[in-house]
Design a protein around this nucleic acid. Structure first.
Lengths: 196, 196
DNA sequence: TTCATTTTTTATCATTTGTAAAAAAAAATC
DNA sequence: GATTTTTTTTTACAAATGATAAAAAATGAA
C-alpha cells in the first residue's frame, strides 16, 4: 500500500502539505520476528505498514497478552510515546516480513505546529484510532467470547489466516483452550471436514 | 469547574484562540434523570461538565450496558456524531443535577479549519480520550473483574460514592450479583461493620 | 414516623472459562 | 520422507460468573 494512499485515507491533505509530510518519511524492511517497538522505552518513530502484519503485546505476570494487530495501511505506534513522549507498555513484533514507512515523531510534531492541514490530519488520525478502540471496548462489554470470535471472523477473515490462534485467543481475552472449544462448537467451524 | 480550566488542561491555548472558543460556548443546567444525548441521532452539541456526573449506556437485548462515566471537567459527546457526523449508539443520562457548558459541534469544526492552535487542541482532545479508552481496554484484557473493581476503587473512589452499584457492575462488565460477591469477598469491604 | 419503592446482598444451580496434561495435527528442519 | 518442533485440539476437573428468586437494606414520599 502506497504512502500517499495511507496518509490521505486518514484525512485528505492539500498537495503541498502532503509533500511536506512525505519528505520526512523513509522506507525500511524488517524480517518476521523482529521486535519493532519495545516496552519501557520512549519510542521516537511512527511506522505505517506498507506490507505485512504485526502484533502489540504486553506482559501480565509471566505470559504475553496480545491486544492489537496491525495490517497494511495501519499505523504502528507506542501510544504513550507518540502522545506523551513517555515510555510505553507494549512490545510490537512483526508476524511476517514487513515493509514499513518510517516517520520520526519529532518531525511529525513539528509539522503539527506549523501546518494547520497536518494538525487536522493528526486530529483525524487520533480520532480514527479512538473510534476503533472504543468499538473494541464496547464489543468487549457487549458480546460473549464466542460472539467476539464470530465478529472477528466476519470483519477480519484475513487475520485468521495470517495469525496463529494463540494470539487470536489472547486478543479476544480468552485462553487458547477456550477459543478451541468455541471454534468446535460453531456449526461451520473451518477445520471441520465435510464427509459425504 | 471553570471552562477556561477545562479547555486549557486539554491543551494550553494562546489567549486569542481560547477567547475564540469561549465565544461559542454557552451554559445550561439540567435535572438529574435527563437524557442529554440519545442513540440513533446525530447529536449537534459537545458538552463539558461544570458540575455533576453522567453515564453513557447502550442497549444490548433488553438491558442497558453502562460503558462510560463523565465527571467534572470531562467532555460529553457522542463519538460517532462528533467524529463522523453519524448517528450514535449511546444514550447519555444525567445521574445528578448538572451544570454544563455547551458548544455546537459545527462551530468547533469551523474553528478547527481556521485556527491551528484550536486544531491542535482538538488533536490533543482526541488523543487524551484515546489514551483513556486504550487504558480501559487493556485493564479489561489484563485484569479480573475483582482487580478491575479494586482499580476503580483506588483511582476513582468518588465514583463509588456517587453512582449506584448496578451501573458500576455494568461498567465493569459483570452483573450486579457478581459485583456484590466480589465486594463481600474483599478484606475491607466498605459495607462491613467493625464489631468491637 | 410509616409505607412503598429501589437498591443491594444472599442463596442455589447452570454455564462458561481457566488450568494442566496429553493427544493430535500442522509446520519446520534435516 | 522422516524427525523434530510448534501449534491446535481434546479431556478432566476447578474456579468464576451468570440467571433467577428471595431476603435484607437503603432510600424516598406521604
Amino acid at each position: 500500500m502506497e504512502i500517499t494512499e495511507i496518509l490521505n485515507q486518514i484525512y485528505a491533505l492539500p498537495a503541498a502539505s502532503c509533500r511536506k509530510l512525505q519528505e520526512k518519511i523513509t522506507e525500511a524492511s524488517f524480517p518476521k520476528g523482529k521486535i519493532l517497538l519495545r516496552a519501557r522505552r520512549v519510542e521516537k518513530t511512527v511506522y505505517f505498514i506498507r506490507k505485512g502484519i504485526v502484533r502489540a503485546y504486553a506482559h501480565q505476570n509471566d505470559h504475553e497478552i496480545t491486544f492489537w494487530f496491525g495490517q497494511e495501511g495501519e499505523a504502528v505506534i507506542s501510544m504513550n510515546s507518540y502522545i506523551q513522549n513517555k515510555a510505553g507498555y507494549e512490545d510490537i513484533e512483526l508476524l511476517e516480513n514487513c515493509d514499513l514507512y518510517c516517520l520520526r515523531s519529532e518531525d511529525l510534531h513539528r509539522l503539527y505546529a506549523e501546518d494547520i492541514h497536518i494538525a487536522n490530519w493528526g486530529r483525524k488520525f487520533a480520532e480514527r484510532e479512538l473510534l476503533r478502540t472504543e468499538a473494541r471496548l464496547i464489543s468487549r462489554q457487549f458480546s460473549t467470547a464466542s460472539e467476539r470470535y464470530q465478529e472477528l471472523l466476519r470483519d477480519h477473515p484475513d487475520l485468521l489466516q495470517r495469525v496463529q490462534l494463540g494470539h487470536i485467543a489472547s486478543y479476544l481475552g480468552i485462553t487458547q483452550v477456550s477459543l478451541s472449544r468455541i471454534r468446535s462448537a460453531l456449526p461451520s467451524s473451518p477445520h471441520q471436514e465435510i464427509t459425504g
